[in-house]
């Protein structure tokens, strides 16, 4: 299994559906599969889905970047621009105590990595951010974890000033198509 991370500029004059179609085309072409004409909809919990049941997507945007992860298995993607924010306040409000402890020992430098990893997980499960967002942890005193509840978390290096995380049911290579 492999995962495509398709990234363009957030300010592109294309709709989300057009961008998803382009991402799906790139994925299917790479996999040697016929390219379907996809229709984008959202399930009851707001998770973006395709009419093609064998394809899974997750979309995210932050700052200048918009991204779509495409895979044959469920996947969660989060992109976070690192910017000056009240990270301590947000961590205390939303993060697990283990994550807060990790951030305190690292002067909050990995804050956006923790947020992106957490959000990629809840997008993978389809739960989205709920009151249970602080009930699980993606980092502890040893650093970022590589998996949670059987799902695999991986950071995807792309551009300085951004944290990108993908969550998937197993370790899978991620290839990035940079359309920025």
């Amino acid at each position: 299994m492999s995962i495509l991370l398709w990234i363009c500029r957030q300010k592109e004059e294309t709709s989300a559906e057009e961008r998803v179609q382009q991402a799906v085309e790139a994925f299917c072409s790479n996999q040697g599969k016929p390219v379907p004409q996809v229709r984008l909809f959202h399930d009851s919990r707001g998770k973006p889905c395709l009419n093609e049941k064998n394809l899974h997507i997750s979309v995210s945007h932050s700052g200048e970047l918009w991204g779509c992860a495409v895979s044959l298995c469920p996947v969660g993607l989060d992109i976070q621009e690192e910017r000056k924010q009240e990270t301590c306040r947000i961590a205390r409000r939303f993060f697990h105590p283990a994550e807060c402890a990790y951030l305190e020992q690292t002067e909050f430098r990995p804050f956006f990595a923790v947020w992106a990893a957490k959000e990629s997980y809840v997008k993978y499960t389809g739960e989205g951010i709920t009151d249970g967002f602080g009930a699980f942890f993606v980092a502890d005193r040893n650093g970022m974890v590589s998996g949670i509840n059987g799902a695999f978390l991986q950071a995807v290096p792309f551009r300085l000033g951004y944290q990108i995380y993908i969550c998937s049911p197993m370790s899978a290579p991620v290839w990035v198509q940079d359309c920025t």
Binding site: H61, S62, Q80, E86, R89, I90, R93, E119, G128, I129
Partner: peptide, 17 residues
């Protein structure tokens, strides 16, 4: 406003405070 989930939760924190 094209806010994402982080932006929204950030605003929530600001309102709460």
């Amino acid at each position: 406003l094209e806010l994402n989930s982080f932006d929204i939760m950030n605003i929530v924190c600001a309102f709460e405070e």
